[in-house]
């Protein structure tokens, strides 16, 4: 074997030559640099990241440049096609579609990211606890089954009826609905993640490196954060990217049913549904939010794909 040949003596600090030789060994590099190096080689992921950043700039920085009020009604300019005054046209009340796309994007992306984060947190927590602690397994997985069996729409109807007003009083009309929607989407979409994570943890728990960590005396919480979570990253990543898409689409569906944000409050889903009535006259009004939703979802999926590959040291460097 080669490593025996180039075995090095323990560094003697006395001689400068040896000290210099010791300097040549690269200190352990932060592994996120390796992750970034690998991520850069994934073209789709880079493209996705670029587009996602562009979308974020469009919806969050855009309103500073395109200062038109999304709620401003100019009834004489209604149903206009794209023009210099309204680059994406106007809706049936003459509101500027580009301004509404920006305002709507803020809500949609915020809902998507927060709901996904909540679902992921819940799902990973439940999955890891159920997989790692045998005593909690039965209880947690039956709870998961319960949530899976729960009919989503009646549940949403009841919750929104019950909690809309107190939340509005506490967080303001939009803030209250935002909290409610994020919470409801998060709470009803963590189950798949939990099941996948539990299955992975159950398998990992029996691997010898976990046994080795136990023989070192690693306590459970560091066992989970150091050994289990990094190894269940792939399924979590996939759930995350699919979760964003799912949350944006569920939010649009809720808005459409009148359970979400108020009807004059733009979100991408809302814009899309409002535009369907005018499909024949102004097809571009459907295309803008539709494209925005699908391209954002696609870009997030690609980012997730690239991250998953980059986080796996076995794939890294190929």
């Amino acid at each position: 074997m080669t490593e025996t040949a180039d075995r090095t003596a323990a560094p003697a600090p006395a001689t400068p030559a040896l000290a210099a030789e010791f300097e040549t060994y690269a200190a352990p590099r932060n592994q996120w640099w390796d992750v970034w190096d690998q991520f850069k080689t994934h073209k789709g992921a880079l493209f996705g990241l670029g587009f996602f950043v562009f979308t974020l700039l469009f919806v969050f920085v855009g309103p500073l440049v395109w200062t038109m009020d999304p709620q401003f009604i100019d009834i004489r300019a209604r149903n206009a096609g794209p023009s210099l005054a309204h680059p994406m046209g106007t809706d049936q009340l003459g509101r500027d579609t580009m301004a509404r796309m920006m305002a709507g994007g803020q809500t949609s992306i915020a809902v998507g990211l927060t709901a996904m984060a909540l679902a992921l947190l819940l799902g990973t927590l439940v999955g890891v606890l159920a997989g790692y602690f045998r005593r909690l397994d039965g209880l947690l997985m039956r709870t998961t089954d319960l949530f899976l069996a729960m009919p989503l729409l009646p549940l949403l109807l009841v919750t929104i009826m019950l909690f809309r007003d107190p939340l509005r009083a506490n967080f303001g009309p939009e803030g209250g609905i935002f909290v409610l929607i994020v919470f409801m989407i998060g709470v009803t979409s963590w189950m798949q993640t939990a099941r996948v994570v539990r299955a992975e943890v159950l398998a990992l728990k029996e691997r010898e490196f976990v046994l080795a960590a136990r023989s070192i005396g690693t306590p459970s919480r560091r066992m989970i954060t150091r050994h289990l979570l990094p190894n269940v990253m792939s399924p979590i990543m996939v759930s995350a990217t699919l979760g964003i898409a799912n949350a944006i689409i569920t939010e649009s569906a809720l808005s459409f049913l009148g359970l979400g944000f108020p009807s004059d409050f733009p979100t991408w889903g809302r814009l899309l549904f409002d535009a369907t009535d005018w499909l024949t006259q102004n097809p571009e009004r459907v295309i803008w939010p539709g494209m925005a939703i699908s391209l954002t979802v696609l870009s997030v999926n690609y980012i997730g794909d690239g991250l998953r590959d980059a986080l796996d040291p076995r794939i890294r460097g190929r």
């Binding site: 352990p28 010898e208 490196f209 023989s215 005396g217 990094p230 990253m233 076995r314």
Partner: peptide, 26 residues
């Protein structure tokens, strides 16, 4: 037990399975 762990250690059978694939040698 944790206090006593440093005195007793183990070398495992399967060197592939006993090393966490997501950790560096260091």
């Amino acid at each position: 037990l944790r206090r006593l762990r440093p005195k007793m250690q183990m070398v495992f059978q399967d060197p592939q399975a006993s090393l966490n694939p997501r950790m560096t040698v260091a």
